[in-house]
Amino acid sequence: MNRIKSAFENGKAFIAFITCGDPDLETTAAVVKEAVKNGADLIELGIPFSDPTAEGPVIQGANLRALKGGVTTDKIFDFVKKLRGEVDVPLVFMTYSNVVFSYGAERFISLCKDTGIDGLILPDLPFEEKDEFLPVCRKYGIALISLIAPTSENRIAMIAKEAEGFLYIVSSLGVTGTRSEITTDLKSMVALVRQNTDIPCAIGFGISTPEQAKKMAGLSDGAIVGSAIIKLIEKYGKAAPEYVGKYVKSMTQVL
């Protein structure tokens, strides 16, 4: 859990989301290394799910490409084990509850610890259902990362008080995907978070430009970018690592 904290210790954090196995795991490894080389402080590794209900079309596409390419949870654990030997930044999994549940919570979460995963983000696991996995996460020291949304309002204090790792602030209504404008009153959301917890918070959903990243990180402790990176991978395929590296640099330079 301390490793997640380290991502926020050198100024504002830049968090990159990458779907494992899109288009293949070799490319994913190269993309992660390029992102880290260019200043990414934490990597969210997406385990693809057939029906990702919180994702917009871009990340849905990455999920389907990865599954079509034959990636599985087992292959991803093998991949992470190898990757862990090459990168030091915190790594967290982002996936859906059924991927963890069907693998077996104990088996999945203990393997997270064994392979060097630091946290777990499950967008379909709200506060009310977190006991599904929280006791096992605690047992193995894996942070179960909570999300708050523009509609959370009276729930923010309750969620923040029990948050672990970092708090993922969803910038806008709707699903993942780039947005030209973010209109949520994030300043008051972050203020409420700060009143209730000392753990860092980062803003995600809709961020694609350096200007947006700077603004969002300015309001919080970091910016999370997913769809903009996935778009590059979709466009350049196996040649994407170089382009992702340049893109991450353009973002981290302004933070």
Binding site: T53, D124, F127, E128, E129, L147, A149, S152, E153, N154
Partner: peptide, 10 residues
């Protein structure tokens, strides 16, 4: 149960 995104909880 209620396995949905936080956005929908309220």
């Amino acid at each position: 149960g209620q396995y949905i995104p936080e956005t929908l909880m309220n």
